[in-house]
């Protein structure tokens, strides 16, 4: 097992270098010059421009710049933001809890609805519920996130006034945030109504961000369940006189979870990409919004570092998923 993990971590290295290269190249391909953006509307003299270029190393050849960046990254230095001058590393971890909180809620939302929906659809295959559910899932999957978010805001925040439009919590509340998770911090603050406010702020972004994973999980669970329900061991379970709930919920679902966990792992990438849109729409102060802002500011270190950290996150999640296979189905553990 340990050897397996180590060999998997070794395969991270080329991916890691590749991601660094892509993020490094991607931001430089974009038109616009960070130094000119920094100068703002008034512009700057050629001498000052050359001075700043030299300071940030833009006068060096590209391969030299990349090498400097890569050696920095390997030593844990992702550089400083051009705009705030603070280390990318610090900025990322100050904002990441907000994204993580939203992503976890969205994933829990998707799982809580998607798994049962997929199971029920598979068990009632071909019947009305199955068809209705799967068409809804298809619609959910094809829904453009930004449009879906605006629609929900118009209905629930605008017309019905049930939920706030943006942010993580009402401005009335102020308390320290040791964990960065608004739900935990608001609860710990002991201020009445703070937790409720945090929850109300979370509802719409969670639904918006969770919609696509929800649709994917529901469809994947259904197809995995259909396959498993035809297996011999399900017939054995029925021959044991077990209840339908036990057969579907324990004997079948446990086996069906393998493909479902795979799509959950893959959804993490989608989730972080979706977070960029969702956070922008709901003014959610997480890394998605931070990344978008940095792209507009041509804040090279932030964009590079952010992409890299997200990529590492996705890699780690997928490694965890591979580990989970063996936990769920011990047969896979044997390699």
């Amino acid at each position: 097992m340990l050897n397996y993990i180590l060999s998997r971590i070794l395969t991270f290295i080329p991916t890691f270098v590749g991601v660094t290269l892509i993020s490094f190249g991607f931001i430089r391909v974009l038109p616009g010059d960070p130094i000119i953006v920094m100068a703002g509307e008034r512009g700057m003299s050629d001498a000052r421009y050359a001075e700043l270029s030299a300071q940030y190393g833009f006068d060096q050849p590209l391969y030299k710049q990349f090498w400097d960046y890569l050696t920095g990254v390997v030593q844990g230095d992702l550089g400083n933001s051009f705009v705030t001058k603070r280390p990318v590393w610090d900025e990322f971890f100050a904002l990441f809890p907000a994204t993580l909180e939203l992503s976890i809620c969205a994933m829990l939302f998707a799982l809580a609805l998607g798994l049962p929906a997929g199971v029920i659809a598979a068990v009632n295959r071909g019947k009305f519920f199955d068809r209705a559910l799967m068409s809804t899932a298809l619609i959910g999957y094809s829904m453009p996130i930004f449009w879906w978010a605006l629609l929900l805001i118009i209905v629930f925040s605008g017309n019905l006034q049930w939920t706030p439009v943006s942010g993580r919590i009402d401005l009335l509340y102020y308390f320290p945030d040791p964990t960065g998770f608004m739900l935990i911090d608001s609860l710990a603050s002991g201020q009445s109504g703070a937790f409720k406010s945090a929850v109300r702020h979370l509802i719409l972004p969670t639904i918006v961000l969770g919609t696509i994973p929800l649709a994917v999980i529901a469809r994947q669970t259904r197809s995995a369940m259909l396959e498993v329900l035809g297996e011999d061991y399900i017939r054995t379970a029925r021959a044991k006189g077990l209840s339908t709930g036990r057969i579907n919920g324990i004997h079948a679902l446990r086996n069906a979870l393998i493909p479902v966990i795979t799509v959950i792992g893959l959804s993490v990438g989608t989730l972080l990409a979706g977070a960029i849109l969702t956070e922008t729409i709901f003014s959610w102060p997480g890394i998605g919004k931070w990344m978008v802002d940095s792209i507009f500011r041509r804040d090279y270190p932030v964009v590079q570092g952010g992409l890299l950290l997200i990529a590492v996150m996705v890699m780690v999640v997928n490694l965890t998923v591979d580990m989970l296979y063996g936990v769920i189905n011990p047969k896979i553990r044997k390699r």
Binding site: Y233, A239, K240, N329, K331
Partner: peptide, 20 residues
């Protein structure tokens, strides 16, 4: 079924649940 009336099947390998 499974109590007074029991059944065993052709393929023992696939008739047992691999996850338990």
């Amino acid at each position: 079924v499974g109590n007074d009336l029991a059944m065993i099947f052709q393929e023992p390998m696939s008739s047992l649940n691999p996850c338990f």
